[in-house]
């Protein structure tokens, strides 16, 4: 792609850049940041209307490294979900992109994560999952493998939490997994997620080259390359009402997103239907048993209403309402007082 190519907004890919990354060279998170800004460029996301949200950790630092023209809120550890809930209710025209890690989501922020998903807060929720704490030097997180050994943290005695399964259990309306080494898949998932109605959780295995990249770790580059099963390939067609079928019968599935865009899934696992929750649980459980990383769109539900829709808000974002719209009249106060005992 040429450096001078512009998108629908007349912006260059470079206009979606952030500041230089300060993460370790080779960190999986850096390639995810690159894919976020690339996908945003391809999607022609209006950066003024994007908020980048994060918690605390290596992953949560990354919003500084992409889309520098968007507001960002690097909040506190494990609390990005609640802050984002407030942000999107205050201004439902904003598109929220959250970046979290496995510790931020699976440990300290587990409750907030589950409740955000349960509320179906419209946002893209990216988990950069490497199974360890980086900034505090290598402790295990809740997604680390049972029995796993690392040089720094010793042996992990606890079972791994599967964040996609947890999202699914909380009625998540878009569950996907990817691998930071698969740039194309990440971009296609992100573009679909940008058009998704509610919470889109994308759990991306993103190796920590410093603390958790031994070949026998399921969060390593090696494992990601050798033990990855791709469920489906996503074609994303933006803002169209209809698309022509050109895949082999039974080998593809089209899902229309809430904003009219389409996701075309080329099925690589014939048996999995990503609109079937039971099927999604099945493939996750199977992957757990076989210790493979399944990637692609695991589950999608375009019917579930969002927290914003349930609030039946006025079209103008709350944050933009005028004083006249939010301060009732003196007559209204008199009426309210008249209803009190006097």
């Amino acid at each position: 792609m040429g450096r001078t190519k512009t998108n629908e907004l007349g912006l260059l890919a470079a206009d979606y850049n952030g500041r230089p990354s300060t993460l370790c060279p080779g960190c999986g998170h850096n390639s995810i940041s690159n894919q976020i800004q690339q996908a945003a460029f391809e999607y022609s996301l209006n950066q003024n209307m994007v908020v980048k949200m994060s918690g605390i950790g290596c992953s949560s630092k990354t919003p500084a490294y992409f889309m520098g023209r968007s507001h960002a809120f690097n909040t506190i550890h494990g609390r990005m979900p609640s802050v984002t809930t407030g942000v999107v209710l205050a201004n439902h025209h904003l598109k929220a992109i959250g970046v979290s890690g496995d510790g931020d989501t699976g440990n300290i922020g587990f409750g907030q994560f589950k409740h955000l998903v349960r509320r179906n807060v419209p946002m893209v929720y990216i988990i950069e999952n490497n199974g360890v704490y980086g900034l505090t030097k290598g402790q295990f997180s809740a997604t680390a493998d049972f029995g796993q050994k690392t040089k720094y943290a010793g042996k992990n005695e606890l079972p791994a939490i599967d964040l996609c399964a947890e999202a699914l259990l909380a009625d998540c309306s878009f569950v996907a997994r990817s691998f930071s080494g698969d740039a194309k898949q990440i971009r296609s998932l992100l573009r679909a997620a940008f058009s998704h109605r509610g919470t889109a959780v994308i759990d991306i295995i993103s190796p920590c080259v410093t603390f958790n990249d031994a070949d026998d770790s399921t969060k390593s580059y090696h494992w990601g390359k050798e033990h990855r099963e791709i469920l489906n390939e996503l074609g994303f067609v933006q803002g169209q009402d209809d698309i022509a079928v050109d895949y082999e019968e039974g080998k593809s599935q089209d899902v229309q997103l809430h904003d009219g865009s389409w996701v075309r899934l080329k099925k690589l696992d014939d048996a999995h239907d990503p609109t079937d929750r039971a099927s999604a649980f099945r493939v996750l459980e199977q992957a757990r048993k076989e210790q493979v990383i399944i990637t692609g769109l695991i589950y999608i539900d375009q019917e579930r209403s969002t927290v914003v829709e349930n609030a039946r808000l006025t079209d103008t974002p709350l944050a933009n309402l005028t004083e006249e719209q939010i301060r009732p009249s003196k007559a209204t106060l008199d009426k309210a007082l008249a209803e009190l005992f006097s």
């Binding site: 909040t75 609390r79 209710l89 907030q112």
Partner: peptide, 18 residues
């Protein structure tokens, strides 16, 4: 879901201008 989330939400909303 708890007071942590309650205050987190209002900090988010306040930041966004509500």
């Amino acid at each position: 879901e708890d007071e942590l989330a309650a205050i987190g939400m209002i900090v988010g909303a306040g930041w966004a201008g509500a």
